[in-house]
Amino acid sequence: MKVLLATEKPFAKVASDGIREIVEKAGYELVVLEKYTDKSELLKAVADVDAIIIRSDKITAEVIEAAKNLKIVVRAGAGYDNVDLAAATARKIVVMNTPGQNSNAVAELAIGLMIFMARNKFTPGTGTEIHGKRLGIHAYGNVGKLVARYGKGFGMEVYAYDPFITDKAVYEKDGVIPVGSVEELYSKCDYVSVHIPATEQTKKSINYDLLSKMPKGATIVNTARKEVIDEEGLAKVLAERTDLKYVTDIAADMQVVLNEKFGNRVFATPKKMGAETQEANVNAALAAANQIVAFFTKGENRFQVNKW
């Protein structure tokens, strides 16, 4: 059995060493492709492998076609829109993610971004505090639950909306107030932390109408995906509402324009860094290796994201 670790941006050494230990202990061969600069290198590397571990590397239909023996791809992280699920499913190739491994890193960043914007991006002038403010969690999954917990630690009143969690007890046991609609969440909260995936239903769903419902002085915090934001609608509402702020871990396609027009009211990290901690790096790497071994030895597919 041959496992490929394909990372254009390599894992930390402790993480890659951990992957090797897990894979080789199971009796498999590990091959490593790091810092590659051309797709042809990836196409060559996948030719005879049974499994692939990736980070943000793109597993396209072309890559899948080149990987004749491929049975499983594991994305070390939560998002998996860099894998062509349709092409993988057509070949009955299992695609997994490693949910929860990066959650704390992303949650801490979300809170940090709130404070950063509340204090005017750490520039001179009077800012505000997040204590006592209303925090809305848009999608109450692994990251959302942690953001809620940390928000409560700062003395925020926390609300949440998730159409897939209808049992109010799930929220109430965490001291979180459930709301009945996304519109109610945005109209009620001073900060909204976005954690929805980019799907056909959610792309551009955070639009002008939704954002215009936010209270005076509100801030939207996006550590999810840029595709869920309707950028034209965002620009329009920021132009009309000089009290609103937008901070993101995923720069908008029109981020340069937003920066020029709205100055201190917008901010994007230079590069997506939600999972960029040593701890998350190692956790996701080891989880990916363990999931591959469990798949081949026990048939486990708990974190499979494509179905047939």
Rank of each mutant, 00 (worst) to 15 (best):
Y191H: 13
K71A: 08
E24V: 08
A287R: 01
N283I: 00
P163S: 07
K188M: 15
Y246I: 02
L234M: 15
E227Y: 14
T242G: 12
M96V: 03
Y140D: 04
D48I: 15
F116A: 05
P163G: 04
V179R: 08
A169T: 14
A86L: 14
N102F: 03
V257T: 11
I64L: 12
R149L: 15
N290K: 14
M214Y: 05
A107R: 00
R265V: 09
K271R: 14
N283F: 03
F303D: 07
K173C: 08
V46A: 04
V247S: 06
N104V: 15
V194M: 03
K35P: 06
W308E: 15
V247A: 03
M96F: 07
G153C: 11
Y208L: 13
I53S: 04
T7Q: 12
A51H: 00
A218G: 11
E231I: 01
Y208W: 12
K226E: 12
S187Y: 05
A218H: 07
K298M: 07
T199Q: 08
E41G: 13
K133E: 04
F122R: 14
G274D: 02
N264K: 15
D50K: 10
N301C: 15
G180I: 08
V182R: 04
G112A: 10
E34T: 12
I115S: 06
S103R: 01
I115N: 12
A294C: 02
L258K: 03
A252Q: 13
A139F: 04
I54Y: 05
F295H: 05
Y36V: 00
A6R: 00
N69T: 14
A284H: 06
F296N: 09
D81G: 14
A294Y: 03
